[in-house]
Design a protein around this nucleic acid. Structure first.
Lengths: 351, 351
DNA sequence: TTTTCCTATGAACACGCGTTTACAATCTCG
DNA sequence: CGAGATTGTAAACGCGTGTTCATAGGAAAA
């Protein structure tokens, strides 16, 4: 049935054609030292001629790794509309590819759902992937903790660093504090003193970090933090809209500038402002976060903190693969990616 | 080294614990008929208890498929910034997952590059994937033709249907003609008679199809096609910008409305218009194509033809998997996805 | 020359599962 | 009650590769 594929050349065949044993072919393929140059050349010639590639399944069965990492994208609702995670996916795939690894991507709606958890574990056990990267996972997600405990190498973003030394966990985070410092510093430089923040999801590390960064930055610039200008929201556009809307309805005095948990939230918040007849930056200066693909074309073009997502995912992917290959587990102190810089556009005005 | 993984339970162990032979375990796992209910129950109990999952590599080696499809994204330049292909990727992954298949994604810069071609072939031969889907491939790409000739099942988008009957090739296209009919029909309904088009890449089927659809639609509405209003461009924003810019510089008389090869091109063209002090829709009505993620938030919000990309990729993925599983190869006449509909926003005005 | 040691290579086994074949137990019908 | 048909189970083989182990041969050392 499926046997009508091409001649299916294997190492036995190569050995026969080269007039050596299969062991020797294996030694050549895997670059062993103790095979004399002429023998190696002879075997290589046959291999090239017949375009022989070892069967991965057989290699895995014989104890080699799969050279495959799983990429698990947890998307609550939002049917793959999230542009950011799409960017992260592409980044992981490209960086892994550069290191000779392939990526098996899996999209999950809810990591705590039993079926989803089962399907993730099946990928680890059934397909024997060498490691996994999770995007959008909650902190201390039980599924992930289990996997780590069971000996799998896991890469995580937006997570607290574990206190204990865990060779199976690789964590990389954005430098959110520094980003916030850039945003607040810029506004302060424009003369703003009354600065608010629309917060992200505080259950996520990035939400917490940004808020902490905001507080630190305000302190550094000697500005007071007004609790009424700290608006709880989340990371989605609708949450930004709702947060701003209810703030405006409260009749509370407005700040002159506001920093946002991310650009999506900024879009929502600006929409709410517009509905109340307010305009950006005339009535309120706004700084976003992430440099979303839309931000440059948004009206007004959004001034925002550009985060080096690609660099971060590269570091995560590379660190994970280093761990997988077991070279010097735990060295290289995981230097934080520098990355963040401010992109000035049209959503702020000097005071 | 890597042997410090969990107990590594296999079918031998299950057989021992259940007090049956390994063959019986296999028969239970694969749902064979000739195993009595009590034996099945007994074995299943042990399987559940020990969370046994068959090792895929061993299954593959024993002749089963990998239940994996390769997804090859060809991105000329544009470092994964293409939101459309990101959407398509997610769609393939989700639909394949629903059918029990996993997706190995690979990003290529240039399919005709020897190294890239080699890496693609390696994925097919080394990893024994059951089939592949190519996004962004040129028509009659040699690499793809080779793969099909070598017996692999390939799914394609935006390609001419082959005249001959090819069981290994699955092609799904958008109904671009119908989309153009919607766009032109809408403009005609608004009273426009002087309608132009900014063309896409005519080397791609979708470029050709859209132009053909435009011609047919104009004819259907009894409107003349002015060659000077047929602007050659491509599918990228910059090409739209350049096309519109050079048209405006030519001093040629303007149409009152123009349809675009896609939304990205529309963004570019509108930017060129704005630079010349022209505004949309006051000076020119514009209809886009694709309903790009940006279009709703663009200024002006873009009236566009929304294509059912997700439905299309679902059909492609499902058809490919049906082919892989060999059920009735070549039946089901590949009905074109209905999909296309017009999203009316603010970029057109009645004449 | 003899002994020792290394090098090159092939034979054999392990990996985990599907499948085929063979055999035993039960059942069916004459 | 016995011969054939059916069913449940076990043993054995093959899939393609990595790896260990044994050995033949030759070179270096004595």
């Amino acid at each position: 049935m499926s046997k009508l594929r091409k001649s299916e050349i294997n190492s036995v065949e190569i050995a026969r054609l080269a007039g050596v044993s299969r062991s020797t072919v294996s030694r050549v393929v895997n670059n062993y030292a103790n095979v004399p140059p002429e023998t190696r050349a002879k075997v290589m010639k046959v291999i090239e001629e017949h375009r022989y590639v070892p069967n991965l399944s057989a290699q895995v069965l014989a104890g080699k790794g799969t050279r495959t990492i799983g990429l698990f994208v947890i998307e609550a609702g939002h049917v793959s509309s999230d542009m950011l995670s799409n960017m992260l996916i592409a980044s992981v795939i490209e960086n892994a590819s550069a290191l000779g690894y392939y990526v098996l991507t899996h999209i999950i709606r809810d990591a705590s759902d039993a079926d989803s958890a089962r399907s993730v574990k099946d990928i680890f056990y059934q397909r024997r992937i060498d490691g996994g990267i999770f995007i959008g996972a909650a902190n201390e997600e039980p599924l992930i903790e289990e996997l780590i405990a069971e000996g799998f190498k896991i890469g995580l973003v937006d997570q607290h660093l574990p206190g204990r030394n865990e060779p199976n966990r690789v964590v990389v985070n954005f430098d959110n504090e520094r980003g916030m410092l850039l945003a607040v510093g810029y506004l302060a430089g424009l003369g703003h003193k009354r600065i608010g923040i629309v917060n992200g999801d505080m259950k996520r590390l990035s939400g917490q970090d940004k808020y902490d960064g905001f507080l630190a930055a305000m302190k550094e610039h000697g500005l007071p933090v007004e609790p009424r200008w700290v608006l709880p929201a989340g990371f989605h556009e609708e949450e930004g809209y709702e947060a701003m809307r209810s703030f405006l309805r409260s009749g509370e005095e407005r700040p002159t500038a506001i920093v946002m948990a991310n650009d999506s939230v900024a879009f929502g918040a600006i929409r709410a402002l517009r509905e109340q007849g307010l305009s950006v930056p005339e009535d309120l200066s706004v700084v976003g976060f992430d440099d979303h693909a839309l931000s440059a074309r948004f009206q007004p073009a959004l001034t925002t903190v550009k985060v080096d997502f690609d660099g971060m995912m590269r570091q995560l992917t590379e660190s994970l693969i280093v761990r997988i290959e077991g070279e010097a587990a735990g060295q290289a102190p995981e230097e934080p990616p520098a990355g963040s810089r401010l992109i000035v556009r049209d959503s702020c005005r000097p005071l």
